[in-house]
C-alpha cells in the first residue's frame, strides 16, 4: 500500500476556464434562427395587436372577424375533416401492408411513397389539370357513364382541396404509422390470429392500441401541414370563396399591404395549431433528451 502523504496539502481544485466549445459552434445557427425566425414570429404577434397608428388595439381582429369569419371556419373544417380522413385511411392501408404479405401488398408498399416526395406546387398543378371541369377525371367519368357530360363535377372547392391534401398526406401518414406497426412483434399478431381474430379485430385491438403514439404524431404533423399549407389552396381555389386563412393572408399582403390584418390572421392560424404544436414540441424534446442520455 502506498503511503498517503497527509502532510502535503492537496493541490487546489482545478477549474478549466474558457468558453465551452459548444458556444461558438451553436452561435451561427442560433443567431440565424433568432434573427430570421424568432424575431419575425414575435413581430407577427405584436403587430397583430397594433392598429395603423401603432397603438395597441383589437381593431385588426375586429376587421378580420368581420371579413373572414367564414374562411376561418372553413379552414378549421378542412383541417379537421381532412386530418381525420387522412389518418383513418392511412391506418387502414398501413394495417393492410402490415398484416398481408402478398406480392400485391409488397408492390403497394413500394409505390405508395410517391406522393411524399412530390412538392405541393407540383401536386397543385396536377390537381388543376386532373380535377378541372374539363380535366381528366371528369372526362373519364363522363366517358364511363358515371356523370352527365354537360354537367361535370365542380371540384375547385372543398372536395378538390380534400382530394389534393389526401393525395399528398395519406402516404406521409402511412410512412409514420406503418413504421410504428413494424415495431410490433409478429407474435402479437399470431397470438391474436390463433384466438380467432379477423383483420378488423387485429387492427382495432392490437395494432392501433399498441401504436397510439405514432398515430398521434402522424395526426399532429398532418394537421399542422394542412393548416399551414398555402400553395395548394392558393393554386386550386384562387379567389373563390370560401378559402383558407393562408390565402387570405396573401390577399391582405399582396393587394392591400395590410400587415395588421394579415398578422391577426396569422396569429389565428397559430391558435388553430396550438394544441398540436405543444404536443409535437413536447414529444420531440423528450425524445431528443432520451437519445442524448443513451449516447
Amino acid at each position: 500500500m502506498p503511503v498517503i502523504r497527509t502532510a502535503v496539502a492537496p493541490p487546489a481544485a482545478r477549474r478549466r476556464g474558457g468558453i465551452p466549445p459548444y458556444i461558438p459552434l451553436l452561435i451561427p445557427a442560433v443567431a440565424f434562427m433568432l434573427l430570421v425566425y424568432a424575431f419575425p414570429f414575435l413581430s407577427s404577434i405584436v403587430t397583430s395587436f397594433l392598429d395603423q397608428q401603432g397603438v395597441p388595439s383589437l381593431s385588426n381582429y375586429r376587421r378580420t372577424v368581420d371579413l373572414y369569419a367564414r374562411d376561418i371556419i372553413f379552414t378549421l373544417l378542412v383541417s379537421v375533416s381532412n386530418t381525420a380522413g387522412t389518418i383513418l385511411l392511412a391506418i387502414a392501408l398501413a394495417a393492410y401492408l402490415r398484416v398481408r404479405n402478398s406480392r400485391m401488398s409488397r408492390f403497394i408498399g413500394h409505390v405508395y411513397k410517391l406522393g411524399i416526395f412530390i412538392p405541393f406546387v407540383v401536386v397543385a398543378q396536377m390537381m388543376r389539370t386532373f380535377l378541372a371541369p374539363h380535366g381528366l377525371l371528369n372526362v373519364t367519368l363522363a366517358r364511363t357513364g358515371f356523370i352527365d357530360i354537360d354537367s361535370p363535377l365542380q371540384l375547385f372547392n372543398f372536395s378538390g382541396l380534400t382530394f389534393g391534401f389526401m393525395w399528398k398526406l395519406v402516404p406521409f401518414a402511412i410512412l409514420i404509422i406503418y413504421g410504428g406497426f413494424q415495431m410490433i412483434d409478429n407474435s402479437y399478431l399470431e397470438a391474436a390470429r390463433s384466438t380467432g381474430a379477423g383483420f378488423f379485430a387485429m387492427v382495432a385491438r392490437i395494432l392501433v392500441p399498441m401504436n397510439k403514439s405514432s398515430i398521434l404524431v402522424a395526426t399532429v404533423l398532418v394537421y399542422a401541414q394542412i393548416v399551414s399549407c398555402f400553395t395548394l389552396p392558393y393554386m386550386l381555389l384562387g379567389g373563390r370563396t370560401p378559402t383558407t386563412i393562408t390565402v387570405d393572408i396573401a390577399h391582405r399582403v399582396t393587394y392591400f399591404r395590410d400587415y395588421g390584418s394579415a398578422n391577426s390572421l396569422g396569429v389565428i392560424s397559430y391558435a388553430l395549431v396550438l394544441v398540436a404544436a405543444a404536443y409535437y414540441l413536447k414529444t420531440s424534446v423528450r425524445q431528443y433528451r432520451q437519445g442524448a442520455d443513451n449516447a
Binding site: 445557427a29 424568432a38 404533423l221 399542422a224 399551414s228 394579415a262 397559430y270 395549431v273 414540441l281
Partner: peptide, 17 residues
Amino acid sequence: FLFLMPNAFPQMPVFVN
C-alpha cells in the same frame, strides 16, 4: 425548441413579416 418551432407552427406569418 427554437429549431423545432418552424415545424410546429405555420411559417406564413413569418414570411409576411
